[in-house]
Amino acid sequence: MSTEAPAHVSRTRAGEPVTLLESISEALWEEMERDERVFLMGEDIGAYGGAFKVTRGFLDHFGPERVIDTPISEGGFTGAAAGAAHMGLRPVVEMQFMDFISPAYDVLTNYVATSLYRGAGPMPLVVRGPVGGGNRGGPFHSQNVEMAFFHTPGLKIVYPSNPHDAKGLLKAAIRDDNPVIFEEHKGLYRAPHCRQVLPREDYVVPLGSARTALEGDDLTVVTYGLMVHRSLEAAAELAKDGIRIEVIDLRTLLPLDEDMIAASVQRTGKLLIVHEDTRTGGIAGEIAILMNERAFEWLDGPILRVTAIDSPVPFSGVLEDYFLPSVEDIGTAARYLVNY
């Protein structure tokens, strides 16, 4: 086996900036180096290095017992990962596209999420993979899957927006004793504007903690993933007119950092929720009722949301651009609320 670490997992050690995809690779590599219980399962992750090359070079270094190429059988290998987790290992399952997590819905919701509850013990299992639209992938390669699992007690759901958080959150997820769904937006994987120089020392970003991506007093925008960047773009436009919005990047969707949202809303009095996922049953509904319970007295306007349209993700660029929330959509809603 090769002892050399490939370049794409060594950039931080060399002091170079990394993309979000490289930060994921670095997190996996470093956790596998740190803890021999960590291993990977998924389709084409070994010899091929993964559909997006997240695990390129891993097989040579860690060997086939820790980088396991599986049949195209998401339910089967997620179930197997659960069995390995029961035996004390810490599996990280890759869904080639998170759209394909649906065959594993049964095992994740009925078995994995209920493990501790049923008396079967902790379940240190991470299921990670690419999500999101904007790549003309159509309905089977572009979905956001968080709300399919948000309603299931026992799970955690993570959705980073930048390399620093992605690396720290993934490390925290791997070290967590609970099952974690980890979503990685394809549109951020290699985005040049997202590149960051990361700390050389080991770090984690605690699960369940949001961050303030931009401070402001006029309006709270709660968002995550790629929409953090669109919200920041909108904020830059609004700032030209003297409107200062606060952007909260949730980072972890389950458990939700209610305290940070409530504190911000209590200060700004206005709340806009932005997500790329479709509208009905989206996380905006849950956040809205939470703030209704916790911050109603502070609200000076309706809680609004900017989301994708209730539709499968379209393939055509024209249709997909119309389907997805845009910077303009966020700006329009923000202005409406600020002027309410």
Partner: peptide
């Protein structure tokens, strides 16, 4: 290792446990 749930699921789970033994 007990569980009464979806039929056939435990063959998947025990496969993973067995792979952990081998690993």
């Amino acid at each position: 290792f007990g569980w009464a749930g979806p039929c056939g699921l435990m063959t998947q789970v025990l496969t993973g446990a067995a792979l952990a033994f081998r690993g």
